[in-house]
Amino acid sequence: MNAIEENTVHPSRPLLALDVDGVLSPYGAGRLPGYVPHQVRPQAWVDWSAMVYPRPSHLVVQLNPAIGERLEALPFDLVWVSAWTEQELAALLGPLGFTQAPPHADLKGATQRTFFLRVDDPGVSPDAKGDLYWRSQDVLGWANRQDRPLAWLAPHFPKTVRRDFADGHAAPVLLHEVDPAAGLTDADFTALTSWAEKVAALEPAPAVVPRQCRDCGDRSTTVIAGRREDRVHAACGSCCECYCPIGDGSDAFQSCGDLESERCTRCGWCRICGCGC
Rank of each mutant, 00 (worst) to 15 (best):
E197R: 15
L140W: 07
G22N: 05
V173H: 00
D251F: 07
A200I: 00
P180M: 14
V23F: 08
P103N: 05
D19W: 01
A182M: 12
W80V: 09
S238F: 09
R118N: 06
D218P: 00
H156S: 14
Q87W: 03
G237S: 06
G28E: 11
A171G: 00
E5T: 10
T185K: 02
L96M: 10
Q39N: 02
H176S: 03
F98R: 05
D230H: 05
T160I: 09
V40D: 01
R70I: 12
F98E: 02
F165C: 10
E69I: 03
Y53K: 14
S82A: 08
A83I: 03
A101D: 03
G237D: 11
D131V: 12
A44E: 07
G247C: 07
L150P: 00
W142F: 12
P75T: 04
D186W: 07
L74W: 11
F115R: 03
D21F: 04
P155C: 14
A101Q: 15
L18R: 07
D127S: 10
V46A: 13
D248K: 14
K159I: 12
T160Y: 00
A3N: 11
G109P: 14
V223M: 05
G226I: 01
A225C: 02
C240W: 11
V232I: 00
Q43F: 13
R135Y: 10
D138G: 08
D230Q: 13
R231D: 14
T99N: 09
H10V: 02
P149M: 10
A166V: 05
